[in-house]
Design a binder for these strands. Structure first.
Length: 110
DNA sequence: ACTTTGACTTGCA
DNA sequence: ATGCAAGCCAAAG
């Protein structure tokens, strides 16, 4: 795939930096790449990741600002996402991840 | 080339 | 606190 969009690489690089047992939000990544409201791009990029062989990218560690697994629907199964997170030691608070414990923020340039 | 949609977030009423 | 609308950038039709 042509890396015409550098932001995609940016997003991939950040998501790849997410430590195990932690999660981040689209907004955090968006801000890290320079786009505050670029959260949608993150989702779009992740979608491309999920379909691509970019298995190196823990897209399952990316959740919305509420900690809900918004993209669970795009996985092989809508529950495999939570399964992976729990397998890493991530705890859940109902339908959302415990952001107070596993909320990780990428290094923002600036 | 133009319009619509999308794994989101923030602001105003 | 709840509800509706705007903004951002890129891809698909």
């Amino acid at each position: 795939m042509p890396q015409s969009s550098d932001i995609y690489e940016r997003i991939y690089d950040i998501v790849r930096q997410i430590p195990e047992g932690h999660v981040t939000t689209y907004g955090a990544i968006a801000q890290a790449i320079g786009s505050r409201s670029g959260a949608r791009l993150v989702g779009w990029a992740l979608n491309a990741v999920a379909l691509s062989d970019r298995t190196d990218i823990p897209c399952h560690r990316v959740v919305n600002r509420l900690g809900e697994l918004s993209g669970k629907m795009h996985f092989e199964t809508p529950f495999v996402m939570r399964e992976r997170l729990e397998a890493e030691g991530v705890t859940f608070s109902g339908e959302a991840v415990d952001m107070k414990k596993h909320l990780w923020v990428p290094p923002i340039a600036g």
